[in-house]
Computed example of a mutant assay.
Amino acid sequence: MRLATWNVNSIRARVARTVDFCVRESVDVLAMQEIKCKPEQFPYGPFEDAGYHVVAHGLNQWNGVAIASREPIEDVEYAFPDMPGFLKGHEGPGAPQEARALGATIGGVKVWSLYVPNGRGLDDPHYRYKLEWLSALTGYTRDALAKDPDLALALVGDFNIVPTDEDNGDPTLIEGVTTHVSVPEREAFAGLLDAGLTDTVRPLIPTGYTYWDYKQLRFPRNEGIRIDFILGSHALADAVTGAKIHRDERKGEIPSDHVPVVIDLDLTGPDDDDDRPMIFG
């Protein structure tokens, strides 16, 4: 299975480019973030013509997540347990949930397409919301893997966290001043790993950015950051045979400010037929 994640920054603006990438790179499952549309507005046709099933979760022109798959999409979930919501000016529990998480089982893998809250500013209520959201995600992960230690679980998407200084090439992101690089955010990311996940790409690609701002010539100057990840349980990480960050997708006509991150998985067991056709290129 070839599994990819991509913050497409408006699927309606970039559907042709997204589908072309999936076909050209033989992607089996694509998790998308920031689709910026409601499900009824999603451009299903081009994906279906290319042989993909699609589920989408969006509430308005902001946020939104989706999954496209060549294999059937089963057990769809639109939020993980205890996922908090957010509404500006709202205090306490009960805020409406945003379209930031979409889970499904595909080919035996539990895939979550995640768009972690940005945080906006260290003194902004959205920052507290971000940390609460990540705490709930960590709790879900720990509980799911305690229930089934052999679960092939993939948490993929835009985490809006730069885990290490080596992942930060943007001079405007400064610890203690801006989000994405603050100690609590980095501790929250580390907490996901402590809950039983592995950054499946980093062992194969130790360095490299996945996002470059459109402003200030960030891409030509390579002043990017690494914020898009494929985190996997041990069962998933052990099946990884390859990985790639598609930097060139930041080039060309109307690119997203993010690029796809891809892993190849060999999910065949020792008793599987060695003659079965491969499903990734």
Rank of each mutant, 00 (worst) to 15 (best):
T5E: 04
W6V: 01
N7W: 00
V19W: 03
V19I: 14
D20G: 14
C22E: 00
R24W: 02
M32I: 03
E34W: 01
C37R: 00
Y44C: 01
P46N: 04
E48K: 13
A50R: 12
G51K: 11
G51T: 10
V54C: 02
Q61C: 07
N63S: 09
A66W: 03
A66E: 04
I67Y: 02
R70N: 07
E71M: 15
I73G: 09
I73E: 06
D75I: 06
D75C: 10
A79C: 14
A79Q: 14
P84D: 08
P84Y: 08
F86Y: 15
F86E: 04
L87N: 10
K88F: 07
P96C: 13
R100H: 12
A101K: 08
L102G: 00
G103A: 15
T105I: 05
I106G: 04
N118E: 15
P125S: 06
H126S: 14
L134G: 03
L137E: 01
T138N: 02
G139C: 13
R142G: 06
R142W: 10
D143N: 11
D143S: 13
L145V: 08
D148H: 11
I161P: 00
G169Y: 04
D170A: 13
D170E: 11
D170M: 13
T172V: 14
T172P: 03
L173Y: 11
L173K: 12
I174M: 08
E175A: 15
V181T: 09
E187G: 07
A190L: 12
D199Q: 08
I205M: 12
Y209P: 06
D213K: 11
K215Q: 11
Q216K: 13
R218K: 06
P220Y: 10
D228C: 04
F229T: 04
F229V: 10
I230Y: 04
I230W: 05
H234G: 05
A235D: 12
D238Q: 12
A239E: 07
I254A: 01
P255W: 02
P255C: 12
D257M: 01
I263Y: 04
D264M: 14
D266L: 09
P270V: 13
D274K: 12
P277K: 07
M278A: 11
I279C: 04
F280S: 15
